[in-house]
Simulated scan of single mutants.
Amino acid sequence: MSEIERVGVVGAGQMGAGIAEVCARAGCDVVVVEQGGEAAEAGRERIRVSLDRAVDRGRLTGAERSAADGRLRFVTDVGELADRQLVVEAVIEDELVKADLITRIDKVLADPSAIIASNTSSIPIMKLAHGTDRPGNVIGLHFFNPVPVLPLVEVIGSLTTSPQTRERVEAFVTGTLGKQIVRAADRAGFVVNALLVPYLLAAVRMVETGRATPADVDRGMKLGCAHPMGPLELADLIGLDTVAAIAESMYAEDREPLYSPPPLLRRMVQAGLLGRKAGRGFHAYPEPGAGGG
Rank of each mutant, 00 (worst) to 15 (best):
E3Q: 14
I4M: 03
E5K: 14
E5V: 09
G11I: 04
G11E: 09
Q14H: 14
M15F: 08
A17N: 08
A26S: 11
C28M: 00
D29A: 14
V30G: 03
G36P: 04
G37P: 08
A39K: 12
E41C: 07
E45C: 13
I47P: 03
G58C: 08
T61L: 08
R65S: 10
R65C: 06
S66H: 11
R71T: 09
L72P: 01
T76V: 07
V87S: 04
V88E: 10
A90I: 04
D94G: 11
L96K: 15
K98R: 07
I102D: 06
P112W: 08
N119R: 00
I123R: 02
M126C: 15
K127H: 15
H130K: 14
P135D: 01
N137T: 03
F144N: 00
V147G: 09
E154V: 01
Q164T: 14
Q180C: 15
V182S: 11
A185G: 13
G189P: 03
N193W: 00
A203V: 03
R205K: 13
G210D: 01
A212C: 07
K222S: 04
K222H: 01
K222L: 09
C225M: 14
C225N: 08
P228I: 06
L232T: 00
L232R: 01
I238R: 00
G239P: 05
V243S: 00
V243D: 03
V243E: 03
A245F: 05
I246R: 00
E253R: 11
R255A: 15
Y259G: 01
Y259R: 13
P261Y: 01
P262T: 05
P262E: 00
P263K: 07
R266E: 15
R267T: 08
G272K: 10
G272Y: 03
L274K: 11
L274R: 09
K277T: 01
E287N: 13
P288G: 07
G289W: 15
A290S: 13
A290P: 15
G291M: 08
G293C: 15
